[in-house]
Design a protein around this nucleic acid. Structure first.
Length: 675
DNA sequence: TCTTGGTCCTTTTTT
DNA sequence: AGGACCAAGA
């Protein structure tokens, strides 16, 4: 039986309340994951709900994985078998897979990432409006927003108020048709398609309502309209809903999140019960106080006051550095020193920043100090050309209609198939209503193309068909390896890379990708599941499972990540760097007047720290190629001055700096003797 | 078709 | 500073 005695009274109340819809307002570090996981165990053990009737939805793969592990630990081996814990996008993917026909897709459909989508939109706009590409990003964002708001192309055309809106709506409409033709969905479709399916097909909805009898949603403040609609439809008039959220940690409004969904719950579920978790188990008093003070500058729908009984702890430090290089150096050297002083591991330190590009300098300096580090997130891996290429091949293996993938790889590595050939092929395919891949082996091409070109296309088509057969017939991994051999991808990298070193690194990435798929298949076999290539590629695109591998080698490394990526995580020692106006808060946020969201981001960053928090800024920063003066962030002035050690606010003389250095050295000698 | 060199633009955050 | 994109030449 579940043990709820480790929970505090509020937490226990939240875990045990199953008689109606429940909103848990969980402040940072208030143990909400404990509540969710124990509640799941309670539902299984005490309420007799079968695990396969329970679904917990999160926003990141990391959170989903952690939750799964913790539930497994509570319920014992197999006790949670059949339980669904996944991201919204993953859940959506599964729904579409199981409702393929109704949803209007074919097996093996592709999931396109933003780059792929942008390419399609660019083509559409080019073709339809002769647009030069300046509008593409705007249009892409707008389409994404429309989808997040559950607005279909027809709705959009109907609603359009201006010429520009009409243009976007039409582009949206064509774009959506092209996706269908490619048998592909984008990220937003993973939410919108299932939701529309539920809305328009009652029999489908009933099926899923029968399956999911209890729904738990984490980070509710991050849901968008479409996601909320899905939740409402799934729950219907029943009582099985628990949502957990914190309006102060809403940092995804820019991608369509509606923090007001928290307050909408009260209207949509009149019997809603609200439980607040206000005790923080993570941070020292001074850190928490600082966080509270900062967030006090924002308006609040739900009042809450976080408190902690962990003692006051060390003051928060603000370090002014001469420039960004010195800033990074300072942090790197401090980590070296503090690791010894506190007997801490590298993994106890996190360096947080606003934008991914800020990791560069930090990386350089950590290397210089021989500090092991890990950068998480960033587009780094999937943004790489070699990965996009191979993913293109994989997508084409499982979805021959994926013209976007076809276009990416048809001439990579070089097959002497140029723009003219591709253009003609595309026209032909369009006329015949087939995909470009299947058009390559059709007879009608002779009329349009030179025999040479026809031959090259045909060879490609037949070759890929062969690989596909192998991939499905027996060992998929072997087929993929064979494919890499056939196209001599290594050779391609060797001659397209600047240095042999770079080529080697790229090839390593490719192998990493292949290994990931391999591992995934192996792992599933262990548990007795079967993983198709479709599953594997889907997971890859949704960024699932990569971190898993990273986590497996629980290595001792300093963690580098964006403030966004840090949500939900905690570290004993946290550095937040680049605390400057125009950087944090970001210039665009200042211009767009979304300071409140930036402040929440600051709040998220501060509340990651358990024991020590250090904020740094640089007086001069190298940016866009040249050096500019900076102003320290307004958020620094919002911190409680009495709890702050602000070094460098008033100019320190070189003597003072020297003295500080000697004090540090003396401290080290005290601790470790003369080295 | 491929390579080269020049220009211009960038840097917000992610499933 | 670094990368993407494009025009012109081999």
């Amino acid at each position: 039986m579940v043990d709820l005695t480790q929970l505090n009274p509020r937490q226990r109340e939240a875990a045990k309340y199953v008689d109606g819809p429940l909103l848990v307002l969980a402040g940072a570090g208030s143990g909400k994951t404990s509540v969710i996981t124990r509640k799941i165990a309670y539902l299984i053990d005490a309420c007799g709900i079968k695990p396969h009737h329970i679904a917990a939805v999160t926003f990141t793969n990391k959170a989903a994985r952690e939750m799964k592990e913790r539930v497994a630990a509570l319920t014992g081996k197999g006790g949670a078998r059949g339980l669904t814990v996944s991201t919204f996008h993953n859940l959506g993917l599964n729904i579409i897979r199981q409702e393929l026909a109704t949803a209007g897709y074919k097996a093996g459909f592709s999931i396109l990432d933003q780059d792929d989508c942008r390419g399609i939109i660019r083509d559409v706009m080019q073709r339809e409006h002769g647009d030069d590409g300046d509008m593409v990003e705007l249009v892409q964002n707008t389409i994404s927003n429309l989808k997040n708001d559950l607005i279909t192309p027809a709705d959009a055309i109907h609603q359009a108020q201006s010429q520009q809106e009409m243009l976007i709506a039409q582009t949206y409409s064509i774009y959506q048709r092209m996706l269908k033709a490619y048998n592909a969905v984008d990220f937003d479709d993973l939410i919108m398609v299932p939701t529309l399916l539920f809305r328009d097909h009652p029999e489908v909805l009933v099926r899923w309502q029968k399956k999911i009898r209890y729904l738990l949603v984490d980070e509710y403040q991050d849901t968008n309209t479409s996601q909320y609609e899905m939740v409402k439809l799934l729950v219907g008039h029943r009582t099985g809903l628990t949502v957990v959220g914190d309006d102060d940690q809403s940092i995804y409004a820019w991608r369509g999140a509606r923090p007001e969904n928290l307050s909408l719950l009260k209207q949509d579920f009149p019997t809603l019960k609200i439980v607040k978790l206000e005790q923080n188990y993570r941070s020292t008093g001074l850190i928490l106080n600082a966080a509270n003070r900062v967030i006090d500058n924002n308006p609040h729908e739900f009042q809450k006051r976080l408190w902690s009984d962990m003692g006051y702890g060390d003051p928060i430090r603000i370090l002014k550095c001469r420039n960004d290089e010195i800033e990074a150096e300072r942090i790197a050297s401090e980590i070296v020193e503090r690791r010894l002083r506190y007997g801490a591991g590298y993994k106890d330190f996190a360096v947080l920043y606003r934008g991914n590009h800020q990791s560069r300098m930090m990386e350089m300096k950590l290397q210089a100090f021989q500090v092991p580090y890990k950068i998480s997130g960033g587009q780094s891996f999937f943004g790489r050309n070699e990965i996009k290429d191979i993913m293109g091949y994989l997508r084409l293996l499982i979805n021959p209609s994926d013209d976007a993938a076809f276009l990416r790889i048809i001439n990579t590595p070089r097959r002497e198939i140029g723009p003219t050939t591709i253009e003609k092929l595309s026209e032909y395919a369009m006329k015949r209503g087939t995909s470009m891949l299947s058009a390559t082996t059709e007879m009608g091409l002779e009329q349009l193309l030179t025999p040479k070109a026809v031959d090259r296309l045909r060879r490609f088509g037949h070759w890929l068909a062969g690989i596909t057969r192998n991939a499905y017939a027996d060992d998929a991994i072997a087929a993929i390896k064979e494919m890499l051999e056939d196209i001599d991808y290594e050779g391609h990298l060797a001659q397209s890379s600047a240095t042999p070193n770079q080529a080697e690194r790229r090839m390593k990435n490719v192998w990493f990708l292949v290994d990931s798929i391999q591992k995934m298949i192996d792992k599933a076999e262990e548990v007795g599941d079967e993983v198709t290539i479709e599953d594997a590629v889907g997971k890859l695109i949704l960024r699932d499972m990569l971190e898993q591998q990273e986590n497996e080698d629980e290595s001792d490394q300093v963690q580098l990540m964006t403030l966004h990526a840090s949500k939900g995580l905690e570290y004993p020692h946290v550095y937040i760097v680049g605390m400057e106006e125009e950087l944090m808060p970001h210039r665009n946020a200042i211009e767009a007047d979304t300071i409140e969201e930036e402040r929440r981001l600051m709040y998220v960053g501060i509340t990651r720290a358990k024991r020590s928090l250090t904020l740094t800024y640089a007086g001069k920063r190298r940016q866009y190629g040249d050096v500019s003066d900076t102003t320290h962030s307004r958020f620094l002035d919002e911190l409680p001055p009495d709890d702050i050690e602000w070094e460098g606010k008033t100019e320190t003389t070189p003597e003072q700096q020297k003295q500080r250095g000697q004090e540090t050295l003396a401290g080290l000698k005290n601790l470790f003797g003369d080295l």
